[in-house]
Design a binder for these strands. Structure first.
Lengths: 209, 209
DNA sequence: AAAAGATTGTTGCAATTGCAACAATTCAAA
DNA sequence: TTTGAATTGTTGCAATTGCAACAATCTTTT
């Protein structure tokens, strides 16, 4: 949230929301918010916890993104086939929806806060690209071991630490790196046995290099 | 190129380039343009053909992106570790470099063409995200067969046709979906034998569904 | 505090894949 | 037009992985 309205006052923010086609929606827990057709919309999580999942033609469900307060999503930012995507609330959530076209076609470019808003949006989207690139780098690795090490190295570089606190469950990690959970579990065991890592719950310590 | 300066006149474009920190660079064929440290730069291919590759700690080289005239690249848009990335010209090329910070910090928001420029940039970055999502969807598949079918389906949906003209070599396709080339070749053979597809050079016809 | 649900660890086994090595073909450059 | 480079097809084999099926922990909810 902060990031999208960075350097925009509350007052200007209100004006902005009136200028653009927006509305704030509230949802209870465990509800499918949008199953499809929400084309060209940008959503910002004001409150809560939301998951974007995708079910392919074989029925495999994948978590595309996990979104927390302040995160942003939308057809243009997250999902490929809105047909097969679902946005599910994990807790009671509040979402600000903005029509993407109303931003792109908005004629009020003379307002400073409008331009700041677009800049912020640009900043957020370039960050998204970086995230995607990270995941691609991992997924492009050919073995589970290399995928794990890739994940660890990226995390370590980003946090400047050789101690990793998994931000999610091992089950979710397996989904993220797109491998079978039990096979990943086995590989983690080998990495431990060979002295590359040490684990204690979701804390992983890198011992190599 | 057109996309970045969409709805901006040549005259305004000139002004814009002076306003921002830009320069136009020319390179001969088969040259490493930037090996690293080009932080926060956006490059636009004015002319030529350029490849972004990455070499990981094991020495595996991956093609991250193939760029043609009008394509855009940069630390923020393409690569994760500028350390390990190379931008290589495949032909004589011309590149327009823009400092990303000079865009974000640019105070000239009152100029209409500046805002149009940012909007265009936003449009381009959201398209990039879509491309990345497509690739992630493919890479997340667990078998070569599913990766290929994913690639085919995405292509078919995008082009509205069941006939695919590969935009690159099979070798590059194998890199793109991150599998061994010979194993992919084998799987394509099976798909042909089972009557799912027909191929003739780089033309692939989908026969299923 | 008990019950239900989710996460984690483990293992055998079959299926899939990467690797290596080579021949055949196509493409590009001199 | 010839020569070298890159692309494509093929196959045996070993390594890796997914799958299935459980048991054991944790977590959450009632």
């Amino acid at each position: 949230m902060e990031r999208l309205f960075y350097q925009i006052s509350d007052n200007e923010k209100e004006k902005l929301l009136r200028l653009l086609e927006t509305n704030i929606l509230s949802f209870p827990k465990h509800i499918v918010m949008f199953s499809n057709t929400q084309d060209n919309m940008i959503g910002i999580i004001l409150k809560g916890h939301v998951q974007i999942t995708r079910t392919d033609y074989l029925g495999n469900r994948t978590i595309i993104e996990e979104l927390e307060e302040g995160d942003i999503f939308g057809t243009l930012l997250s999902s490929l086939d809105s047909d097969e995507c679902e946005v599910i609330t994990k807790e009671e959530s509040q979402v600000l929806m903005i029509d993407y076209n109303s931003i792109i076609q908005c004629p009020y470019t003379q307002y400073k806060y409008f331009n700041q808003f677009i800049k912020n949006l640009l900043e957020i989207t370039t960050n998204k690209i970086e995230e995607k690139n990270e995941r691609i780098e991992i997924l492009a690795k050919k073995t589970i071991r290399d995928k794990l090490l890739s994940y660890f190295n990226i995390y370590a570089k980003k946090h400047g630490s050789r101690i990793i606190y998994l931000p999610f469950s091992y089950t979710t990690l397996a989904d993220y790196i797109a491998v079978d959970r039990s096979a990943m579990s086995r590989e983690l065991k080998y990495l431990k046995e060979e002295g590359f890592i040490e684990t204690k719950g979701r804390k992983i310590t890198l011992l190599y290099k």
